[in-house]
Design a protein around this nucleic acid. Structure first.
Lengths: 237, 237
DNA sequence: CGCCGGGTTGATCTTTGTCAAGCTCAGTGG
DNA sequence: CCACTGAGCTTGACAAAGATCAACCCGGCG
């Protein structure tokens, strides 16, 4: 039985569900698995027979290019369904990776497939979830073309907004257990450059990154500097 | 009535459809609209009540950043459903743009919604279409982090593969009606640099771009240079 | 104690951007 | 028929962003 307030909260933001729908989701058979920090949850080219829900912790999706370089293409917070796509795309074109210690709930494809074919509202919510995902990818393409400091600022704005949407954190301090190497992999830069950019943002009193968290010192200036517009997150509020 | 062999060919590659399914798609009410080259089909922040099918011509999706710079986030060829997402995400976070003269077929959201709720296989095919879209976005994020020449080569590999999948073209010459400005907008570079990179690829006898087409001179070397792996296109073959 | 992952910094090199000019060619109007 | 125009392409000289290489620091842990 699934107990993920974050998931339900998010789905309700995407599509109004009835109590019946919520019950149906709660009744899904789920297998709970714990992952240590910095471990692979699903590998590239795997053919999983189940979809994962992030119950707690932070995960990311990463692709490895032909030259061996690792590219993080998205971050995932509790309540996310980071490989819902595996329901239809049978072979993983990327890996799913636990950034921090992470609890995942796995639901077999058959059960999810049956659920969406029986419950139109849940279908809508899940499909919409994957479409918001795609919208975030679009924004990341744009973000990859921004100068390093703006790109980093934009990423922080996004993570902050998404954490607030599932009720995990409020500014100024956000949990975000990533290393500078991870940030470099996500933005396509080197750790050296990430480090310098962080220094600039810190000295400008815009934001600060500590061990496992971000501290936003000036949210307004951060958003303005990043050119952040939250339309692409399609949060209904 | 829809008459798009490219669409049907592509959907069949994603998910086996019955004759009934195909008939249901053919019976969809469709409004045909022609667009001139370099014209907007759906604007950013619009709230369309219909989804478009590219019947002929080339289109793209583009986002405009806060600083005014335009970013192309995907290219679309005949048979594509470039704004299927508008079925669920009611406000456009990007624009849909005709690169060449373009014929679009528009189907009202109600009819599409009814179709996918009635026909599980069509639901699967359409959902899968949007998931392949998302997979392509992931690869574009990676591609944005490649050096300019490799990124351009990779883009050409992708367009070539997708055109072949819908039966529009075979190597070596592919129709691709884009300017160097468009390529710059798609790769996050300047036209000056695109021009220099094209010169290098031309002088290396890898590929050549003419008025409205690409000529691939050495497909094997092109793919190797780009580090191209077609897994992410999820073509079933 | 020593190691190691992660962070920090400087010097230098490479890739890409900026600015500016000139070219080509298809379409237009005289 | 030809000159004019303008969009798109090409090239050079120079500047800036980011990468590379090489140290060194710090704190946790075997």
């Amino acid at each position: 039985v699934i107990h993920s307030p974050h998931l339900l909260r998010k789905l309700q933001q995407l599509q109004a569900l009835t109590d019946d729908d919520v019950d149906a989701i709660r009744r899904l058979p789920v297998r709970i698995v714990n992952y240590g920090p910095r471990s692979t949850i699903v590998a590239e080219r795997d053919q999983p027979g189940q979809c994962g829900i992030v119950m707690s912790g932070f995960a990311c999706r990463a692709k490895t290019a032909a030259n061996g370089r690792r590219h993080i293409v998205s971050f995932h917070v509790p309540g996310d369904l980071p490989d819902l796509q595996s329901l239809f795309l049978k072979i993983m074109d990327h890996e799913l990776f636990a950034l921090s210690a992470c609890t995942m709930g796995f639901v077999p494809h058959e059960d999810l497939g049956a659920l969406v074919h029986e419950r139109p509202r849940i279908l809508d919510a899940f499909w919409r979830e994957t479409l918001v995902d795609a919208s975030i990818y679009r924004e990341w393409i744009v973000n990859s073309h921004r100068p390093a400091a703006e790109a980093l600022a934009h990423l922080v704005c996004e993570v902050s907004r998404r954490l607030q949407a599932v009720g995990i954190a409020t500014e100024p301090a956000l949990p975000f257990p990533v290393t500078q190497v991870d940030l470099a992999d996500a933005l396509g830069l080197t750790t050296v450059h990430i480090n310098r950019v962080l220094k600039i943002l810190r000295e400008d009193n815009i934001l600060q990154m500590r061990r496992q968290e971000i501290v936003i010192l000036d949210a307004a200036r951060l958003a303005a500097f990043a050119g952040f517009d939250d339309l692409y997150l399609h949060q209904l509020r």
